[in-house]
Write a protein that binds this DNA or RNA. Structure first.
Lengths: 202, 202
DNA sequence: ACCTGAACACCGTTCAAGT
DNA sequence: ACCTGAACACCGTTCAAGT
């Protein structure tokens, strides 16, 4: 019955706490220097405690990647299905993509970072990213375009957006601030947009 | 005067040997698991020996990134300045980009991997990548287009190519083999190419 | 001038022991 | 059921000592 409510023992929900704190931890030090022991320290538990909730470091990252992909794909889908002409919908998807990627940098880094599925377990990860592609496919799906071609168009858009976000994150393209990143993107995506609209007869 | 010529002591040129072997080492295990101690073992020297040639692990990676960028930028420049119409030159750049990136996966990973210039030393790295952008600028530089707009066009092309290579490397876009990666790219880059040509009045 | 080998601080992971 | 703390193997980095 001491004054301190924080029992130094049970944590309440350590699993949730680990998932909540990890992104900030990664944002500070970079994914490559992110450390389970450091994360445990930040939460005031011993390093061993983590292993009661995740089999290993990779499993923690997989959990973050999965929930990230889910939210990301939903965000893209909302933009792709919004009630407007194709061109504006493509713009909305582009904006939504960069906003999400740069607003959730740590998670995005995990999602598109070193492969978490080398061993072939976690096929869910592959499906999760496929979901994002499908969200974007919706933009281009019409009677007159083959399925294969739709995917080419999606790939053209997704690769440009991923490349842009990756290079901005790495400071290879220098823009100051998230807002500037968005407006700069809207200008560089212009040629692709033009080409896509031409193919869609808009 | 023993039969063994390999003196177990001096290595000849350990520095060169380290730079030569590192990419293969990285290709096998992935950049994140790449280890100086492992590399030293592969070369038959003690781990301490590495530090006679590189201040630390990062310096080794910087050396690889710099020589990589140099070769990469030159490759792009050759393609961009080849003797043909703009559209074909863009195609050549695209092909050269993906061929280099996927043919030098480990190096490409270092060049566009975790930032090696966080501390602000090694500004050469920033210049090195700027060189690649300039190589591509050459494609779009005409009287009628402003410098700022030329850079937008370069960014549109470079981000698409980087995004494509990154996603192929991560198996997020599945193509079997380097050749398939090239032909698949040529189809997905089609919309961008069309938009670029429209803007260039070709 | 270049390499060895011990040493130190740090990590991921495991496990018997505590509560 | 969940956490602690010692233990092990491994890394990056340093440095006195060897050749």
């Amino acid at each position: 019955m001491s004054v301190k409510t924080k029992s130094t023992y049970h944590h309440g929900d350590l699993r949730k706490a680990l998932l909540r704190e990890a992104p900030g931890c990664i944002a500070e030090q970079g994914l490559d220097k992110f450390t389970l022991r450091g994360l445990a320290r930040d939460l005031g538990v011993t390093h061993g405690a983590v292993y009661k909730h995740f089999a290993d470091k990779r499993e923690l990252l997989v959990a973050l990647a999965l929930s990230g992909h889910k939210d990301f794909a939903a965000t893209l889908r909302d933009a792709a299905l919004s009630d407007q002409g194709v061109e504006d919908r493509i713009r909305l998807v582009a904006r939504a993509y960069v906003r999400w990627a740069l607003g959730n940098e740590s998670i995005y880094q995990i999602m598109f970072g070193p492969r978490l599925n080398e061993d072939g377990r976690h096929p869910e990860l592959e499906e999760a990213i496929e979901d994002s592609f499908c969200s974007v496919d919706a933009l281009f799906t019409t009677q007159s375009i083959s399925k294969a071609r739709v995917r080419h168009l999606s790939v053209s858009l997704m690769t440009q957006l991923h490349g842009y976000c990756d290079l901005v994150r790495l400071r290879r393209i220098r823009v100051r601030g998230a807002k500037a990143a968005e407006t700069y993107l809207m200008q560089s995506i212009d040629p692709l947009l033009r080409g896509l609209c031409a193919e869609l007869d808009v």
